[in-house]
Amino acid sequence: MQSLRVNGTDMAYLEAGHGPPLVCVHGSLGDFRTWFPVIGPLSKKHRVIALSLRHFFPEHWDGVGDTYSIAQHVADVIGFIEKLEAGPVDLMGHSRGGHISFRAAQRRPDLLRKLILVEPGGELDISLDPAAKPGPSQLKARFAVSAERITAGDIDGGLKFFFDTVEGDDAWARLPEAPRQQLRDNAFTLVGQVRDRRPPYSRLDAESIRPPTLFIGGADTKGLLPQVLHALAAHVPDSRKAMIPDTSHWMFEQAPQQFCEIVLEFLRA
């Protein structure tokens, strides 16, 4: 594990392989370990750099303070890429990390060669979803329930509610102990996420993305996440889309070989 000092905080990261740099940004309750299933295959062709965002493992945050936000994380990812001094990088983000990567591409397209958005999190505004209503989405409201349980000391109860919301009933019960522990290590970041006032995506946002972009989704993912993916993919100018059969939101764990083939083909083109 290495670290870079960025915007007053130490950002931990793992690095493997040689070649064009591929920076990987995890999602909610994740950290650099999120990418373990795919680092090996991807690092055969690329210098893979998997980072941990501010307040995530190995940091142990107590949920107090106002430094957990999309805006802060976007600034940190931009600062991290600048500190690498590796030239334009390929940037891949999953879930919340996909939202962060999208905003980084908006702000600093000069830092990126290609962009990969793996079921990016967030909400749509009325320009992308005519049925959109102001305020938090139903998904975020359920995350608030998880955060309340975590704050009250029921860590596993809150995480179970979160994971079952994203992956379906009894998903937590089927989850092996190692990924459960990773979620526990980052439990209080969900408290910060519920307070985060992230802006919804707009059609103008999508049309502003300049790097060639790949959207990857799990064909069996339910709820808002597929809706966001398809709406953005329809309006990002130079984009393509890949849906992996028989997988859901953590498709790179469920079908790592197919995921890597899709990513490497896109980066090779």
Rank of each mutant, 00 (worst) to 15 (best):
M1R: 09
Q2I: 01
R5P: 02
D10P: 01
D10L: 10
M11W: 01
Y13Q: 05
L14T: 05
A16F: 02
H18Q: 11
G19Y: 05
P20A: 14
C24F: 00
C24D: 04
G27D: 01
G30M: 09
F32P: 02
R33N: 12
P37M: 04
G40N: 07
G40Q: 10
K44Y: 01
K44D: 03
R47C: 07
R47K: 09
A50V: 04
S52W: 08
L53C: 00
H55E: 12
H55L: 12
E59W: 12
H60Q: 15
F80E: 14
F80T: 14
A86C: 08
A86R: 03
D90A: 00
L91K: 07
H94F: 08
R96A: 06
R96S: 02
H99M: 13
H99G: 04
F102H: 08
Q106C: 10
R107P: 03
P109G: 03
I116Q: 06
L117D: 03
L117R: 09
V118S: 07
E119R: 09
G122Q: 04
L128T: 14
A132G: 11
G135K: 01
G135W: 06
S137N: 02
V145N: 01
V145F: 08
E148F: 08
R149V: 03
T151A: 15
T151D: 10
I155Q: 02
G157F: 04
L159W: 03
V166A: 08
W172L: 13
R174G: 11
Q182V: 11
L183F: 11
N186R: 06
A187T: 06
R195G: 08
D196C: 05
P199R: 11
D205C: 00
A206F: 03
L214V: 12
T221P: 05
T221V: 13
K222L: 13
L224G: 15
A231S: 13
A231L: 08
A234S: 02
H235W: 11
D238V: 02
I244D: 07
T247D: 02
T247P: 05
W250H: 13
Q257I: 14
F259M: 13
E265Y: 06
R268H: 15
R268A: 15
A269S: 12
